[in-house]
């Protein structure tokens, strides 16, 4: 299991950030996610695996400035 924005989800071996966003169904809204304390940006979604028992946050918009 792992948590996404505070809610429990099932985890499977090899799951990437891109897999998670496809499962959730609105991947186009997110350019950055945070896995525990580490930010992962869109160019790395396909190759970044989500560890079991991790805490994932979907960052809705980068506003900057």
């Amino acid at each position: 299991m792992f948590r996404v924005n505070g809610k429990q989800r099932s985890w499977y071996e090899g799951m990437t950030v891109a897999d998670l966003l496809r499962d959730i169904g609105d991947s186009h809204h997110y350019a950055v996610v945070r896995i525990n304390d580490k930010h992962v940006s869109m160019p790395y979604f396909e190759k970044t695996r989500i560890p079991d028992n991790s805490e994932v946050f979907l960052i809705p918009l980068i506003a900057g400035g």
Binding site: N5, A31, V32, H39, S41, Y44, F57, I59, I62, G64
Partner: peptide
């Protein structure tokens, strides 16, 4: 705490994000 954690890290999150893009 679920988004950019500005109360913990300020605007430093932008460094690696800008770098990635």
């Amino acid at each position: 705490p679920k988004q950019n954690e500005m109360a913990t890290i300020g605007t430093t999150h932008l460094v690696t994000i800008m770098n990635d893009f």
